[in-house]
Amino acid sequence: MTFVIRAAQPGDLPHLYEMAKLTGGGFTNLPPDRTALGAKLARCGEAFGRDTAGLRDELFVLMLENTATGDVRGTCQLITHVGQKHPFYSYRIGTLTQHSRELERTFRAEMLTLTTDLEGASEVGGLFLHPGERAGGLGLLLARSRYLFIRAHRQRFAERTLAELRGVIDEAGGSPFWDGLAGRFFGMSFQQADEFNAINGHQFIADLMPKHPIYTAMLTDGARAAIGLPHPSGRAAMRMLEHEGFAFENYVDIFDGGPTMTARTDQIRTVRDARDAELVTIDGAGDPAAGGTEALVATGRLGAFRCAYGAVRKVEGGVALDRACAAALAIEPGATVSWIGRI
């Protein structure tokens, strides 16, 4: 395979902008705004440039590049410490149980409560794969490369990691959840609020959103039905998150009602189960007869981080790696790699 995950660079702005225009809305981490994307890359450059341990509010952006053509076909992001510059709001789904002795009836009302419970967690997000490349496991490569990056820089990330999945968006680009709830208080469309949030942050939510719980029975049928549901295009991403150990714990996005998945960082499957080894040889591990295992392989730190699919075979003193993967990672024998089986 000729694709590699690498650190974002200032020259990636045109690539990010072109991908942002294809997202179709509701994709806060990848707004179709050159200024906002340029600011992301600048912040990302600062993060890649700090080679000291310790948890700070940082952003890392990774890119999927075709090494044969130089085309950039996907991207993903990692935020180390959410809620430090702007509050990180979610709705928590809860239930209020009340009993009437006179009626001999018990009532259970579902409520949405505005909360900042998830502040301080790390976040994996901003994953976008060009529509022409949504085959061959490239989405899996993008998603899991983030966990290998976390593993390589564990002290830079929090004890809990979250992932927000885009919620239900209608054919016109609107959100039934937004229209049935927040839109009534803000006087702006979902597209307007989503764009404003992507560029300016969540503070306007703190300024204008009612702080008391919202009874879901008071919402429209469309808004209520959208609570906790991922966009149809995000169902595969939800399954991948569940496979990694993430779970839905009744937190949803305040804009589109999409589910927020959470996991203990050290228990994310790829973080927990990947192995480190020295690259001993690159002589034919990709030959099925040699017994190579198809795997995700990563090497390097910070701006030198790279990740690709490869065939790994255990040998005395370390591992052997197929030539294509070694070339994509730009490594020679003696390098240290982290790897985990593809399945």
Score class of each variant (00 low, 15 high):
S175I: 06
F177L: 06
F177H: 01
F177Q: 03
G180I: 05
L181I: 11
L181A: 09
G183N: 07
F185Y: 15
F185I: 02
S189T: 15
Q191V: 12
Q192L: 08
F196I: 10
F196G: 00
A198R: 09
I199L: 09
N200A: 13
F204C: 00
I205V: 15
I205R: 03
I205Q: 07
A206C: 03
D207M: 08
L208H: 13
I214D: 02
A217N: 07
L219H: 03
T220C: 06
D221F: 00
G222E: 09
R224T: 03
A226K: 06
A226L: 08
I227V: 10
G228R: 04
L229V: 10
P230W: 03
S233L: 14
S233A: 10
G234H: 07
R235Q: 14
A236L: 11
A236D: 10
A237Y: 05
M238K: 14
R239G: 01
L241E: 03
E242Q: 15
G245N: 12
F246N: 04
A247F: 09
A247E: 13
A247H: 13
V252Q: 06
V252M: 03
F255D: 11
D256W: 03
G257N: 08
G257L: 05
G258A: 09
P259E: 05
T260H: 02
T262N: 07
T262H: 01
A263K: 09
A263V: 11
Q267Y: 12
Q267P: 00
R269E: 10
T270S: 15
R272V: 04
R272P: 10
D273P: 01
R275L: 15
D276E: 14
E278Y: 10
T281R: 11
G284A: 10
G284W: 03
A285L: 07
A285H: 07
G286R: 05
D287H: 02
D287A: 06
D287T: 01
P288K: 13
P288C: 08
A290T: 09
T293Y: 00
E294C: 05
A295I: 00
V297G: 02
A298D: 08
